[in-house]
Amino acid sequence: MTSSLVLQAVLSGIVNGFVYALVGMGMAVIFKGTRIVNAMQGEFAVIGSLVAVFALQRAGLPYAVTIAGGIAAGAVTGFLVDWLFVRPMTRRGAGEEGFLLLTIGLAFTLSAAALFFGGRDSHLLPGFGGEGVVEIFGAFLTIHALWLVGIAGAVVIALRLFYTRTLIGLSMSAASLDPDGATTTGINVARMRALTFVLGGALGAVAGLLVTPLIAVNYQMGIGLTLKGFAAAILGGLSNPLGAVVGGLALGLLESLAVLSFPSGYKDAIALSLLIAIMILMPNGLLGRAGRKGG
């Protein structure tokens, strides 16, 4: 096993880890704001990617416009989920189990819709920065992979600043921590929860748009991204969106390094088995009990 092969696995793990982190961040944002475990987070990625693909290939729109359209599609889908389903169930006093079943059902529904409109074919987007490759100490990464890491890092920083420096972000945090107290200060809690789903949908779409130039999107992709994102969020603390970054990178590296010793077909089983072991040893996640409250 050469050092360049190990470095290749590490770089691939970092790239994959940021994708899982973005999906996990979206799940953590929604859980932080609503206490709902969103089992359809990966479908936001599929929706955003397919909208961008069709806008680019069939409508012939500029690439930047299609990317913006994909993010908007994820955000609008998040708003519609809250408006059409979550709010009515909240008014009727639905419990956590009911919301979990709702998002599971919506995941299958949206997957079927993606199959109906997009067919069984897989679709790719052009890579950001072209199709070139960069050599790093004997390992190789596409230009798009570097863009992915850079954009994902910028999203992480922006999300941190959003929650700590903006009035809306602070209001969303207050509404999630103490809804009754937030209401007495004039915060519209229902609106903040709707914005939580909008933000979660947008983050999911960003993850899909970043991964689609590397892995072709299809109607089946959502469930895989949801599971990896959920694992990342659990590792980092489900109430801490920024903790999902640590969890996503850890999962991505475990997954890639497992391929060095075992056939690639076993990478998911090995990575998730190690994840189970980590959670047994560290039940509060990689960041500990305090980290679960961060973000």
Rank of each mutant, 00 (worst) to 15 (best):
T2C: 08
T2L: 14
L11C: 12
I14P: 00
L22S: 03
M27S: 10
I36K: 12
I36F: 13
I47V: 15
V53Y: 13
Q57N: 14
A59N: 10
P62N: 02
G69C: 11
L80G: 06
F85W: 07
R91N: 12
G95S: 10
L100G: 01
L100H: 06
T103Y: 03
I104F: 11
F117R: 09
L124P: 00
G127V: 02
E131L: 11
V134H: 12
A139F: 14
F140I: 03
L141P: 08
A152S: 08
G153T: 00
V156T: 05
V156A: 06
V156S: 06
I157A: 11
A158E: 07
L159N: 05
L161H: 06
S171G: 12
G181N: 03
T183F: 09
T185S: 08
T185G: 07
M192D: 02
L199Q: 04
G200R: 03
V206F: 08
V206W: 03
L214R: 08
Q220I: 10
M221F: 14
M221E: 12
I223C: 03
I223W: 15
G224T: 14
G224N: 14
L225C: 12
L225H: 11
A232P: 01
A233R: 02
A233Q: 05
I234A: 06
G236W: 00
G237R: 01
G243D: 00
G243K: 03
V246H: 00
L249N: 03
L249Q: 01
L251Q: 04
L253K: 08
E255Q: 13
L260T: 06
F262L: 15
D268S: 14
A269W: 10
S273H: 04
L281C: 07
P283G: 05
